[in-house]
Design a binder for these strands. Sequence first.
DNA 1: AAGATATGTCAATATGGCTGACATAAATAT
DNA 2: ATATTTATGTCAGCCATATTGACATATCTT
Lengths: 184, 184
Amino acid sequence: MADINISRPAAGPDSRAAEASPGAPRAGELRWDIIELLFFAYRDFVGDADQELEAFGFGRAHHRVLHFVHRYPGLKVADLLDVLRITKQSLGRVLKQLLDEGYIIQKTGNNDRRQRLLYATPKGEALVARLAGLQTDRINRAIADIGPAGTETVRQFLRAMIDRDDPDKVLEAIFGSGKPATRA
Amino acid sequence: MADINISRPAAGPDSRAAEASPGAPRAGELRWDIIELLFFAYRDFVGDADQELEAFGFGRAHHRVLHFVHRYPGLKVADLLDVLRITKQSLGRVLKQLLDEGYIIQKTGNNDRRQRLLYATPKGEALVARLAGLQTDRINRAIADIGPAGTETVRQFLRAMIDRDDPDKVLEAIFGSGKPATRA
DNA sequence: AAGATATGTCAATATGGCTGACATAAATAT
DNA sequence: ATATTTATGTCAGCCATATTGACATATCTT
């Protein structure tokens, strides 16, 4: 039946160093393995939440909004747009649903009354925590084998994978960059 | 102006262990930090290719198809569907474009003439290599600080993040699982 | 010859992006 | 005080990519 010879990935026409040692490819060699691992890891990572979300009639977009509003209470709409890198029109539909269904509430800014500061409601907190629980289970399983030091290495790797130029508010918070968010 | 107090992420109502040591959260604590890092890291990782793809009139879907066809020459359509976890209708349009524009070719299977085995053309190889080059640059930058041992830790982590039940052909190849792909 | 399998295609629908245009309220600048 | 800019919201339409269901064809298996 199955007769595809898929046992060994091809290195491609550009495999300038096909026989390099597995851990340390030469300069110029492409990181096919890690590229592929990232694809599968992320696919299954977000897949955990997808199933739960479906039961609520939500999608990944709702999850992302709820996640960041939960994590950074009082987030402004404009900040959310920076973080998610979508337009306000795209955010609009998703955010409206979350507001209408009581997962998020808006509060008018104290200093600038034009702003709508976003907060997760208890209902929203419960959902986002449930989703994070599923993903945490997967992360804990993956981390179990590499220990605390390995976990810190993974964190360091992931941080270094992120663009640091033009960081949004959330990234500034994550990286504790030179200019911490000004306080009210 | 900016008056959002975003400097410290909230742990949420479920923060059963808000003061846990940073490297080793207690059982039950949610991995908010790694969840978030994965989001940003993957966002920027795929973002590299997005810009290039635009110039070709392609999207991420084309990239994924081209990547796996390149990496596993002779991949069957059915295998591709398993890997990408999309329907054949969704794959259809994207694959047709790649075929029409000469990035991929089909060859009739030798043993089973119903099968259409997929191969990247030189044109396709060139594009996928260019895209992988961009992503490799980012990976190499991220890896520079953690060394070969750290890189292996990251690989181990990513592998462990991937579902192992019901693996598709590609995952069998990656994990070299008990049942290597049957050969023709 | 019958049935199962691999692939392709038509049609309709949903999600989540996008651009452009426009409206309102509130802050800021002149 | 008026003008401009900013933060947000909304209407309308478009696009990419995913979905389901139905059906067609060629080919392999029984």
